[in-house]
Nucleic acid binder design. Structure first.
Length: 491
RNA sequence: CGGGGCGUAGCGCAGCCCGGUUAGCGCACCACGUUAGGGACGUGGGGGUCGGAUGUUCGAAUCAUCUCGCCCCGACCA
């Protein structure tokens, strides 16, 4: 067969790419750095979108849509923003093609040059704040709490399926507020939403924290993030929430009249998560048999595999299978009855394990005789014989248990992959050994951060919000530090 | 843009150094039969301008020159 995936220990990157392809999630496009998300992969993304969208709406946000194209002049208005994105923009310079006069094919019509180039959005702060300027006059117009689901383009040098692609899907929230405090609360509220989603839907524990000066979003005052730990000991930034201060309001001249009649600049936030979460989900839980999906994000909760030789047997099994499927669907579960006669049961078992379906029910002649079914859970590979009449009643608790077990396993792993160190030697030793999060003292300077990055490839993932006050010495410079920060090598 | 590598069937590859019938293998695909509680087996079959161009030669997947494309490492990566 060609379905075996590389063992995880050999080369994690290769294993990850193999798995993405074998589980039918996505593939490289012929377009440079771009990705085709296949139906199964997209169905998982849809589950994420559905859950996140509800969480945003439950916290007072609404969806809208802004243009794909950003005039070059917009992007230039916020100095650090343009500096941060300038090197990775796709730029539209012309709007027409024509036949080459020498008959060599289609060429760009030089007469169709745009007066002002358009940038394919790498993020939408500028185009959105340009609208907000028109929408906001008074404190009565605030707050504005908008989210958009969109695609963006960042022309990165190197790409990797889901983790970093030239074009990717995401949501970006952009809010405007009358007070600094309110904007700061919004930033933190969204951070909590992201952490909640990561932990309760993705079953992936995260560290909530703040980015250092060197790692923050271009144009932000503060960048908060959630950082997750992958099974190879590398960290992955899974979501960011930015407090923009009045930077974009000033850049786009967005002022409002307060209750006292005085003009002030609006306070802003922006925040986003992307299809990179798919990569996180895969690398957080999968094993050598394939994906392990938490039930809350699984497109198929339960697959029923019949074991039969003859049409008659299949007919009898189908009757039972359809009863089970019908009853479960009535409760809102997604059930697939795979009655294909073109593949053998063993093939199907392996296929659904590869795809991470949480629960498999097998029904064969033996079960018909005994009035039982075989139930197998994907996370632990445990198999149980359950009475046919009880199975429907037991599935909800089983799915809950799988969700919890996957989370607990990841939490345990994150704990084991987190190490406190007090010397630079130990720091390097841990990074080169098991990797993971390394908690160490840092003097707070960008120079030290850059030097450590240069020497070890480890970056400050964040300053954890729950970091305890603890006097210590910077592992690099020996200067005093008030708390440990989270270092790791990262994707 | 530096360093390395690769373009041969849908996918993964061998063949190339040392030129020689009809270009091969695994997987996948199609047909038939036997199978079916953990990725079946047998037999038969279909599928290729060997990335492209030019050259050398009686003869090029193989040698030379040019060219196009892709991958990996580095630089880059809110």
């Amino acid at each position: 067969m060609g379905k075996e995936i590389t063992s995880r220990s050999e080369d994690y990157s290769q294993w990850y790419i193999d798995l993405v392809k074998k589980a039918d999630l996505a593939e490289n496009s012929d377009v440079r750095g771009c990705m085709v998300i296949k139906p199964y992969g997209y169905s998982i993304w849809e589950k994420m979108v559905e859950a996140l969208d509800k969480m945003f709406k439950d916290t007072g946000h609404v969806n809208a849509y802004f243009p794909l194209f950003i005039p070059k002049s917009f992007l230039a208005k916020e100095a650090s923003h343009v500096e941060g994105f300038a090197k990775e923009c796709a730029i539209i310079t012309h709007y027409r093609l024509k036949n080459a006069e020498d008959g060599s094919g289609i060429i760009v019509d030089p007469d169709a040059k745009l007066e002002e180039e358009l940038i394919v959005r790498p993020t939408s702060e500028t185009v959105i704040w340009n609208s907000y300027k028109k929408w906001i006059q008074s404190y009565r117009d605030l707050p504005i709490l908008i989210n958009q689901w969109a695609n963006v383009v960042r022309w990165e040098m190197r790409t990797r399926l889901f983790l970093r692609t030239t074009e990717f899907l995401w949501q970006e929230g952009h809010t405007a507020h009358a007070t600094k405090l309110e904007a700061e609360k919004e930033t933190r509220l969204i951070l909590d939403v992201y952490a909640d989603f990561a932990e309760n839907f993705m079953a992936m524990p995260v560290i909530k924290g703040m980015k250092s000066e060197g790692e923050k979003f271009p144009g932000a005052v503060d960048t908060y993030c959630i950082e997750a730990m992958m099974q190879d000991g590398k960290a992955l930034q899974a979501g960011t929430s930015h407090f923009l201060g009045q930077n974009f309001a000033k850049a786009f001249d967005v002022q409002f009249a307060g209750k006292d009649g005085k003009l002030d600049y609006v306070w802003g936030t922006s925040w986003g998560v992307s299809t990179r979460l798919m990569g996180a989900l895969i690398m957080a839980h999968s094993d050598d048999d394939g994906l392990v999906l938490p039930p809350k994000l699984a497109p198929i909760h339960v697959v029923i595999v019949p074991i039969f030789r003859t049409e008659e047997e299949l007919a009898k099994i189908s009757e039972k299978a359809n009863q089970i499927a019908g009853a479960l669907r009535k409760q809102g579960y997604s059930v697939k009855f795979d009655n294909r006669d073109t593949h053998k049961p063993g093939f199907k078992f392996a296929e659904y394990e590869l795809k991470g379906v949480p629960v498999r029910i097998a029904i064969g002649p033996r079960d018909l005789e005994n009035g039982t079914v075989e139930v197998a859970r994907r996370d632990t590979k445990e198999k149980m014989i359950i009475k046919l009449d009880d199975v429907v009643a037991q599935i909800p608790a089983l799915l809950d248990s799988i969700q919890t077990t996957i989370y607990q396993k990841a939490l345990k792993f994150k704990g084991e992959a987190t190490t406190k160190v007090d010397s630079y030697d130990d720091f390097k030793k841990v990074l080169d050994g098991k990797g993971g999060f390394v908690l160490a003292h840092w003097d707070g300077t960008s120079a030290t951060e850059a030097a450590i990055k240069e020497e070890t490839k480890a970056t400050i993932r964040c300053i954890a919000l729950d970091a305890e006050e603890e006097n210590g010495k910077c592992i690099y410079s020996g200067k005093p530090s008030a708390r440990r920060v989270v270092f790791a090598r990262a994707y």
